[in-house]
Amino acid sequence: MRIREQSQLYPPITKPTASPWQHRHILDLDDFSRQEMEFLFHTADAMKEILGREIKRVPTLRGKTVVTMFYEPSTRTRLSFEMAAKSLGADVTSITAATSSAVKGESLVDTVRTIQALGSDVLVMRHPCSGAPYLVAQQVASSVVNAGDGWHAHPTQALLDLYTIRSHHGGVEGAKAVIIGDILHSRVARSNIWGLTIMGAQVVLCGPPTLLPRFWGQAYPQAIIEPDIEAALADADIIMVLRLQRERQQGGLLPSIEEYVRLYQLDERRLALAKPDALVMHPGPVNEGIEIAPEVAHGAQSVIEEQVANGVAVRMALLYLLAGGAH
């Protein structure tokens, strides 16, 4: 009894480690430091090496359980997480809105408590409501990874974007990064504003005013709002094109898709305004011929496919760091 009390009074001194990793959950990038991101990217380099091997599998997370819970349709993100988890030897369980008790009216909180009771180390979740992962993180002991919540955040997408940029330009310090399109509804834009800014880039946002309202300037003073696409693209180092959903036109936010194409599509003429080595990125799925011209999406400056490939390595690194691999 006394010994226990003493050990509580004097917790064992842990050796200082080189790891700057602080995260239990990955909810957004707003709480990341530059050191943490660098550390993650170093880890992702190692994962990329594993993925280049003939047997793309290591037993690092054997015995750990990763649950993916997708309340919104997704192919690439879910697959990417599942491949990442399996490559590290973790057990993977998948739940979708259609297979969960949500269809029976069970609340999200009850569902995740059940998952917790059955045992999970990392819970990867996508949800149509902004903030849902924050609610879940308060309810469960396992790590929560936000794989996209409503309009709010998609931190792993932004991390793989940064990782992709790093592999081409070495980093983003001082770079001009332009995000074009439906900013208002974009979780990718929001997370990238944080990620790019923390890593030292200057973010420029460009889109029709209905999709990039005035009050955004107050929310993200670190970004520049430039409604004129030519000015936005001038001397850009990085161009991120966002997907335009057809609902935006139906919702009255745009007069027509054709007009959007005329005013905001990234085509070769506009791309020429950016630096010659500017990277063209897109979180996918791409609407070719709408937000981006096909010849740009498949052009020499496009790294869209690379983004997908890097997704697995970055997510492996995240799962590794979260599920105890770092300790």
């Binding site: 903030g131 309009w151 709010h152 955040a153 929001r190 309202p213 929310a219």
Partner: peptide, 11 residues
């Protein structure tokens, strides 16, 4: 509707 809703991604 304001900076907080923009930040949180809420309508």
């Amino acid at each position: 509707e304001g900076w907080t809703s923009a930040r949180l991604g809420l309508r």
